[in-house]
Amino acid sequence: METAFTPLLSLGGGLAIGLGAVLLMLGLGRILGATGIISGIVFPESGEEARWRIALVAGMMLAPGLIYLVSGSMPALDIPVSPAMIALGGVVVGLGASLGSGCTSGHGVCGLSRLSIRSLVAVPVFMATAAATVFVIRHVIGA
């Protein structure tokens, strides 16, 4: 399935993602990494540590509704894979992000911006394995 090339919208969205990361550092002094945020809610160290993460996620969840109010349509969300693949991929994502201490937001956005040596290793690794996985699924297995 083809998707439209959206350089300006994607760049603009990227600027807002970066602004969110900077705001969290300015206000709370924390890295905006989704893996740590979810872990901190599901396995909380304290009520205090869970509360700001829940507020952050609540704000995130308002975003599609805000976009609907402004533009009249929900953001695109097309899922070209089966529920079984979503579940399998999710478990592998959770296992990997937990072992590797981060995902696209924590290592990709925040870690690279800090010039963290661990993120400079992790990001090329996960980009390469993601591309290899899509190649195998679409062009070798032919799903």
Binding site: V81, G89, V121, F126, I137
Partner: peptide, 14 residues
């Protein structure tokens, strides 16, 4: 962990 994360991302797309 990063390698596994990428594999899962490539499977699910999220």
């Amino acid at each position: 962990g990063a390698a596994l994360f990428g594999i899962g991302w490539g499977i699910a797309g999220f």
